[in-house]
C-alpha cells in the first residue's frame, strides 16, 4: 500500500477531527474580524482538501454550522456558537495563510492542529498597542474635525479613560450595552470636566474625536456590505448590533451631559 493511500485512510478515519479543525480555523477567522463569506470559504476548502465529497457551511456572525459528507458515506455535523467578535488583523492574516497551506500542502491533522495552536499563541494582540492606537486616533480625529490645540491635548486623556473603562468592563464581563454606555458616560464626564477646568475649549470637538474609537462605524459599513452581497442574516444581525451600540453610546452621553454639562460649564 502506498503512503498516500495510508494517509488517505488516516484522513477518512478522522472525519470528525477534520471538521473540528476546519471549524476551529473558521471560528477564529470570524473572531478576528474576517468576513462571513471568508469563513464559509475557508471551512469548505479545508474539509474538501481532506477528502469531503460534499460540504455545506452556513456562517453568520454568531454561529458557524457545517455538515460534511465523506466518500464512505460518513456524515459529520458540527457547529460553533460565536460570542464576542473582535478585530485582530494579524491573527486573521496568519490563519488565512494557514488555511491556504492546509489546502496546498495537506499536512497531517496533528501537524495542522499544532500550527493552529502556535498561531493562536503567537498572534495574541497586545494591549499596549491598542492603548497607543486609541490615543493617536483620538488626538488625530479631534484635530481632523476642527478641534484646536487645547482640545487635541485633552483628547488623549479622554481616550485613556475610554481605554481604561473598556478594559475594566471586559474584565468584569457583563452586558455589552451597559459597558458601551459606561464608556461613553465616563468619556463625556472626563471631557466636560477638562473643559470646565479650562484645559480644553470645546466638549463637542473632544468628544467627536474620542467617539471615533467607540462608534460602530466599521460595523455599519460591514453590515451594509454584507446586506448588498447577499449575506442578509449576517448583515441584519450586525446592523442591529451596531444600532444598539449607538443607542448605548447616546444613552451614556445623554446622562453624562445632563448631569455634568450644565453643572460645570
Amino acid at each position: 500500500m502506498s503512503l498516500t493511500s495510508v494517509r488517505e485512510k488516516d484522513r477518512m478515519a478522522d472525519a470528525a477531527g477534520v471538521v473540528r479543525l476546519a471549524l476551529d480555523v473558521g471560528e477564529q477567522i470570524l473572531l478576528s474580524g474576517g468576513e462571513v463569506g471568508r469563513v464559509e470559504d475557508t471551512v469548505l476548502r479545508i474539509c474538501t482538501s481532506y477528502g469531503a465529497v460534499r460540504t455545506d457551511v452556513f456562517a453568520i456572525t454568531s454561529l458557524v454550522f457545517v455538515t460534511a459528507v465523506w466518500e464512505n458515506g460518513e456524515i459529520v455535523t458540527q457547529s460553533r456558537r460565536i460570542k464576542e467578535v473582535g478585530k485582530c488583523m494579524r491573527r486573521l492574516e496568519e490563519l488565512n495563510s494557514l488555511s491556504r497551506r492546509i489546502c496546498t500542502e495537506r499536512p497531517t491533522l496533528a501537524e495542522a492542529e499544532k500550527a493552529f495552536s502556535e498561531i493562536m499563541k503567537r498572534s495574541e494582540s497586545s494591549w499596549v498597542k491598542v492603548l497607543i492606537g486609541s490615543l493617536l486616533a483620538a488626538t488625530a480625529y479631534t484635530a481632523f474635525f476642527g478641534g484646536d490645540l487645547k482640545d487635541c491635548l485633552v483628547a488623549p486623556f479622554v481616550a485613556a479613560v475610554i481605554f481604561g473603562s473598556q478594559f475594566l468592563t471586559k474584565k468584569i464581563g457583563g452586558n455589552k450595552f451597559f459597558s458601551q454606555a459606561l464608556c461613553s458616560f465616563l468619556a463625556t464626564a472626563a471631557a466636560s470636566f477638562a473643559v470646565a477646568m479650562h484645559l480644553g475649549s470645546s466638549v463637542d470637538h473632544i468628544m467627536i474625536g474620542c467617539i471615533m474609537i467607540l462608534i460602530p462605524g466599521i460595523s455599519v459599513t460591514h453590515a451594509v456590505e454584507n446586506l448588498i452581497i447577499g449575506d442578509t442574516i449576517a448583515g441584519l444581525i450586525s446592523l442591529s448590533e451596531a444600532l444598539v451600540i449607538a443607542l448605548a453610546l447616546a444613552g451614556g452621553f445623554a446622562l453624562s451631559q445632563s448631569l455634568f454639562g450644565g453643572l460645570l460649564i
Partner: peptide, 23 residues
C-alpha cells in the same frame, strides 16, 4: 484646514491600524 485634515487622517489611520492589530 485641508493640510491638518490630511495629517490627521494619516495619524488616525495609523492609530486604528494599531487598534486593529496590524503589524
Amino acid at each position: 484646514k485641508e493640510l491638518i485634515q490630511l495629517i490627521a487622517s494619516f495619524v488616525g489611520a495609523i492609530g486604528f491600524s494599531l487598534i486593529f492589530g496590524l503589524h
